[in-house]
Computed example of a mutant assay.
Amino acid sequence: MSSPERARLIADKVEAFVRQSIVPYERDPRRDHHGAPTDELVMEMREKARAAGVLTPHILADGSHLTQRETAMVLTRSGLSPLGPLACNTMAPDEGNMYLLGHVGSPDIKQRFLNPLIDGRVRSAFFMTEPAEDDGAGSDPSMLKTSCRLDGNHWVVNGRKCFITGAEGARVGIVMARAEEGACMFLVDLPDPAIRIEHVPNTIDSSMPGGHATVVIDNLRVPADQMLGEAGEGFRYAQIRLSPARLSHCMRWLGACIRANEIATDYANRRQAFGKTLVDHEGVGFMLAENLIDIKQAELMIDWCAGVLDSGSLGTAESSMAKVAVSEALMRIADRCVQVMGGTGVTDATIVEQVFREVRAFRIYDGPTEVHKWSLAKKIKRDWLAAQS
């Protein structure tokens, strides 16, 4: 079977499952105090995904990963409901963490930490971002303050982290810290008494279990064989994860915006105002037309960047361009959907208002639009200077 045909069959199966089995869960009241689905709800949906053969659909039975272009087809369909990625185990940060461990983990690390993630039995968290009051790493990872030092056959890690998605309830952690040799990356079992959740803020988004915690790491002892690679290689491994994770966010939220546009289109074709249906009013019809244009442009941008990654390139600049273009396009789409639906669009009667909130947050995480533009501008200057020499 050809690769595109294989992906199409998987994607069709995922879409049918999400629309038929997961969309009804959108009214399920099982939420934590931050509005996110509880782990009980997540695991219930995952059992249904397992039975339907769509759990972790981007990773094949032999452990190999779909290409990025194939992944785009599958993850976009899983995103048709905000609950879809949770149910199908294509959610962040787990999907990105699985990608990283699948590419660079030792056999022992894959057995201990990767396989339970692929099986959908546990969640994970990626500990990198640090509090602004500590002058720690945010959009600039070189500001990493969390420290680690070798003590016998263990590394001892100390520091604070913030906006750690899914930390509450996670069973696998990837922790970034700085040694004398440079950045390091560790795999840890969670919970661990040395990693204490200090605070879980209320945030605009509510799709990710465990929230976005601030944590204190106090003399965490990690066996030396749980370091990914060697001391000083942490940023190199982070780069392997970075571009695909940026792009998979684009894929999932594109699916959510496609669904939101379906809901807004249905509303506009049913609702009457001033003697005709809303869609027949130019102001409304034009917004829906603009949504189709932005959806197609987002699809093409994702496909282009996926092709770059499939070529073997890290795709750092390309993923920055895709993240900016897609997140901004999706924000326009979500905003228009709310506007088309008027008062209904800002209520929880549909998922449209949630998609709006989630996509607004997406413009910030994995690098704000402005940081990506600044990075691209630096590349433009470097390339120009290189051309002059």
Rank of each mutant, 00 (worst) to 15 (best):
C250S: 10
C250I: 12
M251P: 01
M251C: 09
R252W: 13
W253L: 12
W253G: 08
W253E: 08
W253R: 08
W253C: 09
L254P: 02
L254W: 06
G255R: 04
A256M: 15
A256E: 13
A256F: 10
A256N: 12
A256L: 12
C257N: 05
C257H: 05
C257P: 08
I258A: 04
I258N: 05
R259D: 12
R259A: 15
R259H: 15
N261G: 06
E262D: 08
E262Q: 05
E262R: 02
I263N: 00
I263H: 02
I263F: 05
I263E: 05
A264V: 06
A264K: 01
A264G: 00
T265Q: 07
T265A: 07
D266Q: 11
D266W: 10
Y267T: 05
Y267L: 07
N269C: 04
N269D: 02
N269T: 03
R270Y: 06
R270V: 08
R270E: 09
R271H: 08
R271W: 08
R271G: 06
R271S: 10
Q272K: 08
Q272R: 08
Q272T: 06
Q272H: 07
F274S: 10
F274M: 13
F274E: 10
G275T: 04
K276H: 03
K276Q: 06
K276T: 02
K276D: 03
D280H: 14
D280L: 14
H281K: 07
G283T: 13
V284A: 01
V284E: 01
G285V: 02
G285M: 02
G285D: 01
F286I: 14
F286K: 14
M287E: 10
M287D: 10
M287S: 10
M287H: 10
A289P: 07
E290D: 13
N291D: 10
L292W: 14
L292K: 15
L292A: 15
L292M: 14
D294H: 14
D294M: 09
K296Y: 14
K296L: 10
